[in-house]
Amino acid sequence: MPMQAHEIEALLRETFPDADIQVGGSDGVHMSAVVVDESFRGKNRVQQQRAVYAALKGKMDGSDGELHALALTTKAPE
């Protein structure tokens, strides 16, 4: 069952309440997300993106994961 943009945003918002989050994509399977959050400051890209994948709580990694692909851009606020 593909995920809608607002569902992804809601899930991310739980972990990143103050972040600037933009979710794109329309087919619910190949989606994109930009997450700008203070918690990323000082972390490298792998650590930042791991935190985002953890926030998605397994929606991605099962073979029946609803979300097949999430193009991710993460950074700390300038």
Binding site: R45, V46, Q49, R50, Y53, G58, M60, D61, G65, A69, L70, A71, L72, T73
Partner: peptide, 18 residues
């Protein structure tokens, strides 16, 4: 890391496609 591909250099995980 939940997705493929995964790149490793000298045994260290570097990242996925993005």
């Amino acid at each position: 890391w939940p997705t493929i591909p995964q790149l490793y250099v000298k045994g260290e995980f570097v990242g996925g496609c993005d």
